[in-house]
Lab assay of single mutants.
Amino acid sequence: MAEQVALSRTQVCGILREELFQGDAFHQSDTHIFIIMGASGDLAKKKIYPTIWWLFRDGLLPENTFIVGYARSRLTVADIRKQSEPFFKATPEEKLKLEDFFARNSYVAGQYDDAASYQRLNSHMNALHLGSQANRLFYLALPPTVYEAVTKNIHESCMSQIGWNRIIVEKPFGRDLQSSDRLSNHISSLFREDQIYRIDHYLGKEMVQNLMVLRFANRIFGPIWNRDNIACVILTFKEPFGTEGRGGYFDEFGIIRDVMQNHLLQMLCLVAMEKPASTNSDDVRDEKVKVLKCISEVQANNVVLGQYVGNPDGEGEATKGYLDDPTVPRGSTTATFAAVVLYVENERWDGVPFILRCGKALNERKAEVRLQFHDVAGDIFHQQCKRNELVIRVQPNEAVYTKMMTKKPGMFFNPEESELDLTYGNRYKNVKLPDAYERLILDVFCGSQMHFVRSDELREAWRIFTPLLHQIELEKPKPIPYIYGSRGPTEADELMKRVGFQYEGTYKWVNP
């Protein structure tokens, strides 16, 4: 592979701008107003304001973009700056750019259920340069409990009458099928589907988006991507930290609602779906819905739930269990780990287990898709061969690698495990991989909904998990304890083995 010439960040961002501006969906010269509902909250200060700053800094926003914060707290732009700027990672050389960014910011205080507050917000936006005809993007960085009041008031008082209007809704989209349907029906009564952007930030990850290209742009994968060759698929999300004093919020939802029903299920769809007619948003989402419709409700015998306990040999936070978090209700049975087996009941995947695993306070930070292939028929190497695996590593250190057998150097035919490896950090030294939120917010500006969740996708996802969630809430089974920093409950490994996964433990990928 030829040595790549190092590029400056300015040059890299210039390439990104060229890609972005050559499309006809990006209205570079139009006025846009980006409204952050819930501007005083954690999500706004840690993710949304920093993301908008990065896009502005790199010249990736339309030229005439204004940012308006809205929340109940009586704040000023200076207050917003004070709480969000520490997350910007701005350099001293960017000081003038930073001043320009905050000059485009404003803030309006108001209630979430008060019509007069929204009329005041609308008047404020109209007073901005060309504000009355601007395109408006409303980001709901809010708890779902206020979605209905907020969307109703936005629709009645704050819509642009000339430009387009788009609304970005953060997960969780309800707690179960019934609450999700209620919320979807409410929002759909106010906005068209092409105006609604239900954001799952995992769909903005580079390697998640790469799944489609790997599958449908490489001839070698087509013939082997089926039940005849693939023994099982494992989708993993692991965090090495616990709730760390923020367990009160987590306890309301648990690990299945927080990660599995959305992030992991979306990745499953991209692995299992048929080739779409095109890369058009609805063509892709149509195929994802077909996959979900082929999955039956989760069966309790295919589920393992766990909850982390303190590690007596650990240090600091590792010595504390979930129930030691003062914000967690006493005696909570909320799971911090889950392993679930699903089956896609169609011709391509009949009988292939899709194993979804996620948890907190585990032994490493990792998100990946792992396809394990069947054993080689007619073994001539005296059971020395391990199964081939194709691994798409989402985070950290984005990579695609194939675990395969090669001859060990020497005189004899002794096979050993090795890999074919594409590590993004080595291959793409001159490429700026956008943060997931950067990519998705740019998608909203461009009107691309491919990486957002459609209402029928959402409904099918909740259909699969709601009976299990209701059973857990009714019966309150005690989750299996696992030690902070471990791989999780051993019962999860036993479940995976029972459905056909072979864990060798003899080879570990190392970032080159």
Rank of each mutant, 00 (worst) to 15 (best):
F66G: 04
L142M: 08
I162Q: 13
V208N: 07
R175T: 07
R198N: 04
A44W: 00
S132N: 12
G222E: 13
H186T: 07
I230E: 01
D194K: 13
I230S: 01
L43A: 02
R166F: 01
N229C: 06
K152S: 12
A90R: 01
N165M: 15
I234P: 03
T91I: 10
F216N: 02
A115S: 14
I36C: 06
F237A: 07
I35L: 11
K171P: 00
S73C: 06
I33M: 05
I52N: 02
S40L: 02
E170V: 02
L203Q: 04
K97C: 08
L140S: 08
F102I: 11
F87H: 08
L137R: 02
M159R: 14
E239N: 01
G14C: 09
H129K: 15
Q83D: 06
E63R: 09
G163Q: 12
P86G: 06
R17D: 15
P50A: 12
V213D: 10
D58E: 13
H155T: 13
D114I: 13
I187G: 02
A25G: 09
K46D: 04
E252I: 05
F66K: 13
V68H: 01
L55E: 06
F250T: 01
Y112W: 09
L140V: 09
Y147S: 00
L140A: 14
D100H: 08
E239G: 03
Y139K: 04
F250I: 03
T151G: 04
L142H: 01
N229A: 04
D100A: 10
N135P: 08
V68N: 01
D176R: 03
N165G: 12
F216A: 00
L190K: 11
R166L: 02
G247R: 11
T31G: 14
Q178P: 06
E252A: 10
N226M: 10
L55Q: 11
L130N: 05
A231Q: 14
R81V: 08
R246H: 02
I52D: 01
I168L: 15
G41T: 00
S84N: 07
L60A: 06
T65I: 13
Y202R: 00
F88Y: 07
S73K: 09
P50M: 09
W164R: 10
G245K: 09
A109P: 10
L7G: 14
E193G: 00
E239Y: 02
E239R: 00
L128T: 11
A103R: 09
Q22N: 14
S179V: 09
E19I: 15
V208R: 00
I33Y: 14
S117T: 11
L214V: 08
W54L: 09
E99R: 12
E206Y: 06
F173H: 03
L140P: 06
C158D: 13
L61A: 03
S117Y: 12
Q161D: 15
A6E: 15
R257E: 03
F253A: 12
S160Y: 09
N218A: 01
D79P: 04
L177H: 04
F102M: 05
M212S: 01
D251S: 12
T51M: 13
Q161V: 15
R182P: 05
M37V: 12
G41W: 00
R182W: 12
Q111W: 14
F21D: 09
F253M: 08
F101D: 01
G242V: 02
P62V: 11
R182K: 14
A109I: 09
E170R: 00
C232Y: 05
Q28L: 13
N122F: 08
Q22F: 06
Q28Y: 07
L55Y: 04
G110M: 03
A115D: 12
G38Q: 01
Q119V: 12
F102S: 03
N226K: 08
A44T: 08
T31W: 08
I168E: 02
I15G: 08
N229K: 05
N218Q: 00
I168Y: 01
P62F: 05
N185P: 02
A44Q: 00
F56W: 07
I230H: 00
L142S: 03
S189M: 15
D100G: 12
R215A: 01
Y249I: 02
E19R: 15
G248L: 13
Q11A: 14
Y118A: 14
S40K: 01
A149H: 14
N153K: 13
K152I: 09
L190A: 13
R74T: 15
N122A: 15
L190T: 11
L140Q: 07
A25F: 08
Y112I: 08
Q178F: 13
V146F: 10
L96H: 08
Q119C: 12
G204P: 01
G248W: 02
I234D: 06
N135E: 10
E148H: 13
M212R: 00
A134L: 08
H27C: 01
C13A: 06
L211P: 02
R81Y: 06
S117P: 10
L235A: 11
A109V: 08
R57E: 04
R120Y: 14
E206W: 07
L98F: 04
L211M: 13
S117M: 14
N185T: 11
E94K: 05
F250A: 02
N185I: 14
C158A: 12
Q11H: 13
E93V: 12
Y139P: 01
S123Q: 12
A78I: 09
D228G: 13
T236K: 03
A115K: 15
R136V: 11
R104I: 13
L96C: 10
W53V: 00
N105L: 12
I80K: 05
V150F: 03
F221Q: 04
H186P: 00
E170P: 01
S123I: 11
I162E: 14
P223H: 12
F101L: 01
F191P: 03
I187P: 01
G131N: 06
G14V: 07
I199Q: 08
R257T: 10
V108K: 13
R72T: 03
K46P: 02
A6D: 15
S132F: 08
N218C: 07
E193K: 02
L7C: 06
S188W: 02
T51G: 08
D79I: 05
A217W: 05
R81G: 06
A109G: 11
L61S: 01
G245R: 05
Y70I: 10
L75K: 10
T31L: 10
E244K: 06
L98H: 03
D58M: 06
L211K: 02
V77A: 10
L140K: 03
K97I: 14
L235E: 00
C158K: 03
E239L: 02
R257W: 02
C13R: 13
V108S: 15
V213C: 10
E94T: 08
L235W: 07
V233K: 02
L214E: 04
L61N: 02
I168T: 15
A217T: 10
A71E: 03
G174W: 15
R257M: 05
F253K: 03
S132Q: 08
L43Q: 01
Y107W: 11
A127P: 09
V150H: 00
K89H: 07
G204F: 03
